[in-house]
């Protein structure tokens, strides 16, 4: 593997999200709070989401981690804003499939998230990318069950 191959992992869009994370912070009136960490490496995320009428109105995150985990968190919060709970959960499944190199509906416009596709070629980094998505899924699933 050369440094060109590294570029499939560290795409420009990823680095942009790493350097300028979107939705960084904590929602004061966040109705949902999820803390999740990756015990093997010490990455952690603190995710707050505001859900109204079955829709994610707002989402913010704070955390510690590598470029992949933080950029993925930034992209995730961007992607779920305005989405219905079931849509957001579906997106998490699609992302999980993408990370495992499985097929997913390629007609979907995933926006920036597509840049993370290269992570699937680096098995040791997949957990970095999925942490934020797991946190989101966990929070929304619990919300659904508590209805």
């Amino acid at each position: 593997m050369s440094f060109n191959n590294l570029d499939t992992l560290y795409r420009q869009v990823i680095m942009d999200h790493y350097k300028n994370p979107r939705n960084k912070g904590v929602l004061e009136d966040g109705s949902l709070t999820v803390n999740l960490n990756n015990p093997t490496c010490g990455d952690r995320i603190h995710l707050t989401m505001k859900v109204e009428d079955g829709k994610v109105i707002d989402a913010k995150f704070e955390g510690e981690g590598c470029s992949i985990s933080l950029s993925s968190a930034s992209m995730m919060t961007q992607a779920i804003k305005g989405k219905k709970i079931e849509e957001a959960i579906k997106l998490s499944k699609i992302f999980s499939n993408m990370m495992q190199g499985k097929e997913y509906d390629e007609d979907l416009d995933l926006g920036d998230i597509e840049a993370l596709q290269g992570v699937s070629k680096f098995p040791s980094r997949i957990k970095c990318a999925t942490l934020a998505w797991k946190a989101m899924e966990k929070g929304l699933m619990e919300q659904e069950q508590n209805k």
């Binding site: 590294l6 992992l9 490496c41 010490g42 992949i68 980094r125 970095c128």
Partner: peptide
Amino acid sequence: HPHDVATVLDAEGIAVRAG
């Protein structure tokens, strides 16, 4: 981040631990 350090080093054939 150390994970990124370890990934770039791995591309050079160098095995280190990060975490």
